[in-house]
Design a protein around this nucleic acid. Structure first.
Length: 635
DNA sequence: AAAGAAGCTTC
DNA sequence: CTCGGAG
DNA sequence: CTCCGAGGAAGCTTCTTT
């Protein structure tokens, strides 16, 4: 069945038509194996496997041609658009630390020295006796030498991070001076420690201790540390991307350690991880001094530089940035450098754990207010607060400083919802059938809405009349939907000054008054779209209001939010409509409604609590919203 | 100028 | 988007 | 239950190569 499917996909829409003739066969095949599940995430204009799509063969003849027309139109436009302006060329790339290299420091033995572990290591390291003669070289030699010393020292102490935070002294591991830039190795060694753990609690503890260490030595570095721990370079809504992939990393790696790309690729196959390849690669270049040891801030800044390169030979420049980092890297640094660049840390540490650790760390660092009021268990509460706050204001640049100056307990006050910064969209839990809905929502009042097959959007309308659109992942989408911007401005009611709308943007044929498949929506251009060139129209299906006239509505029950929604916008078919909804607890009625949704080209239903446990829960896959998709129902 | 490779986003 | 595993 | 990490199809955009 896989063959059938992929075959279908690689065909032109025209050919797809013909293939549809066999769809009954395809269907029986797929259901014989495993009903729909393996295809549930696939998109297709006309489904082979989904029983609830319009019956194959029936009345299909009109639709496909419309589809064809649209697709080819869309393609024609796309083709036209290629005459885009390019950035003016930058001066040719220069630099290349090609012969920076390794003094073979990397193989240092991790001779653990338990006794020394607890002593304060936080003085700027000074040189020890056994040392250089050369005058001019001396300074650098000292540096290099002291940094290998540092690595040794850190290796001996790093395990202390595993202590329960209560028994951990924030200065125990630091081997750098107060206010001194935190060395990148410190982070990498912590990563190593974490990668050997599987339990979330232990990992959280380690991260917590890392954060506290930085907080007490070099709080200025905390933002950078947090970003690297989160494996991000900027808040999502700023849209800063590394633009680094496997191919470029291989090139950089090859350049940095004097091997061929083919060698790298082969070893990558063996080891299954470019990071490991980096770790295993010793530079075969000339043996000169190593550049200065990497600091966390240096690495973070370089990442951002990489992200900002663009235009002609930007790839070359990016590659050189990476090479420079690699050349300066020692020990386990290359491994994590590469993984960070790939955005695949895969050590069992990700956002949620980091946020929890941040909360915990703040509790220990708290000299500010005590749990102000009557917080029972600060160590449980603080992570919740940080997570909550982050879901509403996902910007470390704001949260971390606020945490440092005012502490956790004031965080909800100092970091609040801000127009122009998207909150994490609330998500729905998958369910398998109407009966499951009924049992989960027992005695609740709930409402059912069509689940439209489009793109999630969060639309911010500001007091000054400007509009910003964000995607499900907080990408800045305003430039992609100038038509939506216009629609929203036009259909907002007079007295409405500002709002945040949660909705689905769906491709729509205004002539036939029909919803079009997702695949057509996805053919729209994505950047700097000009209103007059739009070929695929979009209808806004609005279903929630998160903010209105200066007031957040997130804490309100859906019932109220929805009233605000209905009161603030005017509907206009094909442009802006409220999600079709019924409020019922009758199984038959819901089943019928579901069928209607599917008939109306929707994916299924979203069922939501209405007036109890019905607040908006940003970025949560909440139990208050359940989704019922035709694709994964067992019937 | 056009084609191809790589990267990123959506679901 | 879906899925499965670990805790 | 929560969180992490693995996986996938299809589409557009950017940069390099031809």
């Amino acid at each position: 069945m896989f063959f059938l499917r992929s075959c279908y996909f690689h065909c032109s829409p025209r050919l797809a038509l013909d293939l549809r003739l066999v769809s009954p066969l395809a269907r029986s095949l797929s259901s014989a194996v495993k009903p729909y599940s393996s295809s549930s995430s696939l998109r297709r204009p006309f489904s082979l496997s989904s029983s609830s799509r319009p019956p194959p063969g029936r009345k299909m003849s009109s639709k496909p041609s419309a589809f064809d027309a649209l697709m080819s139109k869309a393609r024609a436009v796309a083709a036209e658009k290629k005459k885009k302006k390019r950035k003016s060329p930058d001066p040719a790339p220069v630099e290349n630390p090609s012969d920076g290299s390794k003094s073979d420091s990397a193989a240092v033995e991790a001779k653990v020295d338990g006794s020394e572990a607890v002593t304060g290591g936080s003085r700027p390291i000074e040189v020890k006796g056994s040392n250089p003669e050369k005058r001019p070289e001396q300074k650098k030699a000292k540096k290099a030498d002291s940094s290998t010393e540092r690595v040794k020292e850190l290796k001996g102490k790093i395990h202390l991070l595993k202590k329960k935070p209560a028994d951990f002294s924030p200065k125990a591991v630091a081997c750098w001076g107060e206010g001194e830039r935190v060395p990148f190795v410190f982070l990498c060694l912590a990563f190593d420690l974490i990668s050997n753990e599987t339990g979330r609690i232990v990992i959280t503890d380690i991260v917590c201790n890392v954060l506290r260490t930085v907080m007490t030595t070099t709080p200025d570095d905390l933002v950078a540390v947090v970003y690297l721990l989160a494996n991000r370079i900027a808040p999502a809504h700023e849209g800063l991307e590394l633009g680094i992939g496997e191919a470029l990393i291989i090139k950089a790696l090859a350049g940095a350690c004097g091997r061929t790309e083919a060698q790298i690729r082969n070893q990558n196959k063996e080891l299954g991880d470019l990071g490991l390849v980096a770790k295993a690669s010793r530079s075969s270049q000339s043996t000169m001094r190593k550049p200065d040891a990497l600091t966390i801030v240096k690495v973070f800044d370089t990442f951002r530089l990489i992200a900002k390169e663009s235009g002609q030979s930007s790839q070359e420049k990016k590659k050189n940035h990476i090479k420079a980092l690699l050349v300066a890297a020692t020990d386990c640094e290359p491994l994590y450098l590469i993984r960070l660049l790939q955005t695949k840390l895969r050590i069992g540490l990700a956002e949620q754990t980091l946020l929890a650790a941040l909360g915990q760390a703040a509790v220990y660092a708290e000299k500010h207010s005590k749990p102000s009021t009557d917080v029972q268990s600060p160590l449980e509460e603080a992570p919740k607060i940080v997570k909550q706050v982050y879901s509403i204001l996902p910007v470390y640049d704001k949260i971390v400083p606020a945490l440092l100056t005012d502490g956790v307990w004031k965080l909800p006050k100092s970091c609040t919802f801000t127009l122009g910064i998207p909150v994490g969209p609330m998500l729905a839990k998958p369910t398998k059938g109407v009966s499951e809905i009924l049992s989960k929502f027992q005695d609740m009042v709930y409402t059912c809405e069509y689940k439209y097959d489009g793109e999630r959007a969060q639309i911010h309308y500001k007091e000054d009349g400007s509009v910003e659109i964000y995607s499900r992942n907080a990408e800045h989408n305003t430039g992609k939907f100038p038509d939506v911007v216009a629609t929203v401005s036009r259909l907002k009611k007079e007295d409405v000054k500002s709002f945040v709308l949660d909705c689905e943007l769906v491709a729509y044929d205004r002539e036939k008054k029909k919803i079009l498949p997702f695949q057509i929506l996805s053919t729209r251009a994505r950047k700097n779209v000009v209103l007059s060139e739009i070929k695929v129209d979009v209808c806004i299906y609005a279903f929630d209001m998160l903010y209105l006239n200066g007031k957040p509505l997130i804490q309100e029950q859906l019932k109220h939010r929805r009233e605000h929604l209905y009161d603030s916008l005017k509907e206009e078919p094909g442009f802006l409509q409220f999600a079709t909804a019924i409020t019922s607890n009758d199984i038959e009625e819901i089943q019928t409604f579901l069928d209607a949704a599917v008939n109306a080209s929707c994916e299924g239903l979203i069922i939501k609590t209405l007036d109890r446990d019905a607040t908006y829960e940003p970025s949560k896959r909440s139990n208050n919203w359940l989704k019922l998709k035709k694709d994964y129902m067992d019937r």
